[in-house]
Amino acid sequence: MSLKVRDLRVYYRTLAGDVKALDGADFELADGEITGLVGESGSGKSTLGKSLIKLDGRMRYVSGTVELDGAELPVRDSARMNDFRFREVSLIPQYAMSAMNPTRKVGRMIADLLESRGERFRALRPELVRRLELVGLGEQVLGRYPIELSGGMKQRTVMVLSTLLDPSLLIADEVTSALDVSNQRAVAETLAGFRDRGFVKSMIFVTHDVALVNQIADTITVMYAGRLAEKGPAKTVVNSPRHPYTRMLISALPEVGVSHGERRLSGIPGSPPALLDPPAGCRFRDRCPLAFDKCEQEPPFAEVEPDHSVACWKA
């Protein structure tokens, strides 16, 4: 197991109270596994992704442990976490187009970053250039300002930079949401290629696009209202989902491989509960056609078959 997450809870502080955006996540990631983390916006998938690398200012760690390659990841302590960032856990952000300092040449920025982390830019440069060429970029990218690069070039540069130190875990946070369909696939496949070449060991691919995830991910993790609903091998989750929410999510897809953006989720009647003060028990209860008395208790996220876990009493 490369990643072990136990009962991770991260809330958002607001003046009205805590928003329980991530309310108890338990899962594992095997060496070399790519999991697609899917869910509606507000399901907590981005919070989960962020909490594994850097909590933003309004996030508050509540409980839980994270273990990476057998060592504890100090997710609650941002200062201690710094040693792990980039080297052990890395991020490709949603905003890759604007992730680079606009007034610094790309190469200078990368050099500044590496040197500040105690790495030698000189020593890493050949590998950096090799990887840039691998994604179809030339060395001259390093002498350019971000404004001189196209959106796709910027995205690929960020992908190479984020994985340059061969992190164990890579979080790709909605990296494809700003792209058109053909580029989405290219980016996803490039990332899978990074895994195959050993640039990263395992990967959490956060997205709302089940169809895309099905093409590159080994497993699919479904989140609903701050909790994990289902995690299993991609084929199993797509072809025979066990959680009623996953079922509705999959059936709302007209056909796997065709993407309609977020709109397809509107096929599910109702809306997720407010996470400021969520109801006890199963959070999907109000929208669930199968709901019964027992759903007033919270269902455990339990294994129903090897490597396939579901949080539903009826699974």
Partner: peptide
């Protein structure tokens, strides 16, 4: 944000 996520001081 990106720099901080990559552990830049």
């Amino acid at each position: 944000n990106y720099l901080e996520a990559l552990g830049a001081p």
